[in-house]
Structure formats: C-alpha cells, structure tokens
Design a protein around this nucleic acid. Structure first.
Length: 456
DNA sequence: CTCTGATCATGT
DNA sequence: ACATGATCAGAG
C-alpha cells in the first residue's frame, strides 16, 4: 500500500492548477492531523527547525523527505515553504519570522547576477503555506489557514537592487559589515549553527558571519496581508520609480535643501510663524512632505513591505548630532521574551532609520536649522550585541524588582549604545512609574556616539 | 560645553 | 487622556 502513496515526484502534479487544487485541502487542518509519519510525536520543547515543513512534505504531499537541492515540486519549479503568522492585539496579522532562503556564498556571489544566482533561482516560485502561530499551543495544534503561490518576479526590480547592495558589500570586502537593514525586501540574515561561526570572503581577510538570503519579516507581513484580505492599494505607473526609501524621501525633500525649518513649514502651510516655534516642527514637515507614519503604506508599496522609520535629527556644524534619538515607549511586558525572540531585537535588526538632518547655523536653535541631508542608519552585529546587554540588564532589573539595576544614562555600563530615558509629563518620576506601575513613561534612545558613527 | 532627566506640541 | 517624536533646560 505504502509504495503507492510514495510516488515519483514527476508524477505528482502536472500543472500549477492541480497543485493548488490539491493544496486547498490543507486549509483548516492542524499539523497533527496531517502528520502521518508521526514526526511530531516526540517533539522536543525546542523544536527542530523546519520540522513543520517536513510534516507537510511527508504527511500532506506524501513526498519522501527532501534534503537535496532540487525544488520541492521540481517539475513545476516551485519550492514549498511553511511559515507562521501571529495575530496582533488589534487583530491584524503579522508574519512571525523572516523567510530564510538559501545561504549566501560570498565567494560565488561576486560572479553572479540576480538572474543567474541559482540559489535564488530555486526560490523564485514558492508555495507558501501559512499557519497561525500561538505561543500557548503546541506545534501539533497550530492551524493551517491559508496558502499562496508566490513569485519573486513580482517585486523583481526591488530584489535586483537589494541583490546589488549585498553583492556590492562583498565586492568592497565588507561582507562582515552586512546588515539586514541594508536592503529593502531581500535581507542578508545570519545563518549558522552557533553565533561563533565565521566564514571567508573574497576581498578581505576579515572573517564574516555566514548569512542567508531572506525575505524580511516586514516583507512577509506585506505579502501575507496582500494574500489574505487587504490587497495593497494598487499603485500607478510610478510603482518602481524608487527602489529604496531613501531615494523616495530625498526626492520629496529636494526643493527644500538649504532652507530653514521655519521657511519650509511656512512654504508648505502658507502660514507665518513668528517667535513661537512648534517643538515638533521637523516632524510636522516630514509628516506633510513625506507622510505620517501610519499613512505611508499607502503612499508607496515599498513602505507596506519594509520596516523603516522617518526620523528628524538636529546636527551641529561639526557634524555631530545635537541630540540622542528616541524610540517609542517601552513597557514591562516588552521584556517577557528572551532577547532572541523579542520584539526589540527584530526591530533593531530589520529596521532602517531614515534620518532627515537639519544642520545648525551659528548654533541656531530649533526652527532655524537648515535641511542638509538624508541618511540611512542600520544596525550591525556589534550594535545588536550591545543592545542585547541593555535589554538583558532591564530584564534583570524587572525580575529582581530593583530599580537601581536599570541601565539609565547615569547608571549604565561602559560603551552603552542603547539607552533608556524618561518620557513623562510634568511631575512624573518616569523611571519609578515605569517600574512600579508600568505606566510606559520610559523610552529607548540610541546614544549620540553611536549616531555620530553611523552618520559619517 | 555635554549630559540627562524633564517637558512640550500634536494627534487620536 | 495618553502615546509619540522631539527638544528643552538645569546640573555639573
């Protein structure tokens, strides 16, 4: 009987339609229901990576476990990917993780193009099976709810650009400086058995972390939402006019370089501002010229599928930042997870900061600084290691209920890059409020030192 | 001067 | 009433 079930791959699906027709039956099932090979029965607490994919392969498609480099549905040139999503508090959906593709071969990439890269070629067409991840459930009870045929050519222009950025760093002997935030959709994420693994690169003797191509978490969230219900607002002919957010932002700001904040705001609004300068004048300008953060997804498809934030920064004449840069407030529950699984790790790893710089003229104050630059900031491994220390220190302070352990600027550790700072209202004792009642009156900030290093 | 906790202006 | 992005302003 069993030999009838395990058929030759080439016999299984002749067309995409057949494959999709068969795949539609997986919706509504849990992994336990399809696990005919009983791969999940002795599940370790720390599940083997890719196990759920194997369950679908063997249990649902009845293929022998595939470890060779051929595509899963070879005759159709389609790769099977099983991946999870989570429901946000507000009910919206978000991809749980980035989707890891094949390993980047630093020595080979320098002779490849996006088109010729066979590792990427294998993944250009994917059948993505989505399940709802729930940290309170065992893996066998996760429910498969959707599937989609995905074609990387859909966003080919962006991928080509991302590929060039990654290749460019390797060509420059900077593979060790790769960061997931360098690119828009196609990330270079770390991939190794241990964080100590290192590999060679062709144009430098510096050993580099092994990395793999990935579809970034934010991008996966974008295509998930696209698939499940909300088609992204269809975009006009300008769809690929810009390939990175920096290009887009610079273009929008172009007419205003060299002007002061007040001049720009008056130009936009037609109002005249006297002595009274709004404290958030830079944000008012970027909201108006580029868009409010929450509206950006509709302005350009790039924004729907990337993690970026628009930031404004006063810069001194010598190029040093005048201020630290703040992020949103933190709450006690942000520190429930270990760093590796935490919101903040993913945030700093994948986010690109778009920094609009206003330069001081004769130490000019807010309102009279001049639009001078648009920069991009991403965080590398060293930064993240330091951020992890800050995170763990806060976690420890919370667990031990000892406010004196908080790594505040005045009580931090040496060379701390990620700081915390109060963000209260009049009369608040912010650190205490955060600690005692989780009143979210404390925010992350990155140090001026790190900012300066990144801006050069 | 820089640093760091405090506070503001806006939008929802 | 509060979260956010950002700047303010006193201490050192």
């Amino acid at each position: 009987m069993k030999s009838n079930i395990i058929m030759d791959k080439t016999m299984k699906f002749k067309t995409k339609e057949e494959l999709l027709e068969y795949t539609s039956n997986i919706v509504g099932k849990t992994f336990e229901e399809i696990d005919s090979e009983h791969l999940l029965e002795n599940e370790n607490p720390k599940r083997q990576k890719g196990l759920l994919g194997h369950v679908v392969e063997t249990g649902f498609y009845k293929y022998p476990r595939n470890s060779d480099s051929r595509a899963d549905f070879e005759e159709l040139d389609i790769e099977l990917k099983v991946t999870g999503y989570v429901k946000n508090k507000n009910g919206s959906l978000r991809a749980k993780e980035r989707l890891v593709l094949s390993k980047i071969d630093y020595n080979a990439i320098v002779d490849e193009t996006f088109e010729s890269s066979h590792v990427l070629g294998k993944c250009k067409n994917m059948l993505i099976i989505w399940y709802e991840y729930d940290k309170n459930k065992e893996a066998k009870d996760f429910l498969i709810t959707d599937y989609q045929l995905y074609d990387m050519n859909k966003d080919k222009d962006i991928f080509i650009n991302d590929f060039k950025i990654i290749k460019g760093k390797v060509l420059a002997g900077k593979a060790h400086e790769l960061s997931e935030g360098d690119t828009s959709y196609l990330g270079a994420c770390t991939k190794a058995r241990t964080s100590k693994d290192r590999t060679t690169q062709p144009f430098s003797d510096i050993l580099s972390k092994p990395r793999a191509y990935s579809l970034k978490n934010a991008y996966m969230t974008g295509i998930l939402r696209e698939n499940i219900k909300i088609p992204l607002k269809s975009l006009n002919s300008s769809k690929y006019e810009f390939k990175t957010v920096v290009e887009f932002v610079s273009h929008k700001l172009k007419p205003y370089f060299g002007k002061t904040q007040v001049e720009i705001l008056e130009d936009i609004t037609g109002k005249i501002y006297g002595e009274k300068i709004p404290k958030n004048i830079s944000k008012m300008i970027s909201d108006e010229l580029i868009g409010k953060d929450e509206d950006l997804a509709e302005k350009h498809e790039l924004f729907a599928k990337t993690n970026f934030i628009i930031k404004n920064l006063p810069v001194q004449e010598n190029g040093k930042p005048r201020e630290r840069m703040s992020f949103k407030t933190i709450s006690l529950s942000d520190f429930d997870d270990d760093w590796e699984d935490s919101y903040w790790k993913n945030y700093f790893e994948e986010t690109t900061l778009i920094v609009i710089c206003y330069k001081e003229v004769n130490r000019s104050k807010n309102g009279y600084r001049v639009l001078s630059d648009v920069k991009q900031i991403t965080f590398d491994e060293n930064d993240l290691e330091s951020f992890e220390k800050t995170y763990n220190q806060i976690k420890k302070a919370i667990e031990q209920k000892d406010i004196n352990l908080l790594p505040t600027p005045s009580n931090g550790f040496k060379n701390q890059l990620l700081e915390i700072a109060p963000k209260g209202i009049k009369g608040d004792d912010a650190y205490l409020n955060f600690f005692k009642r989780d009143k979210t009156k404390v925010a992350f900030m990155i140090s001026k030192k790190l900012l300066y290093k990144k801006l050069i």
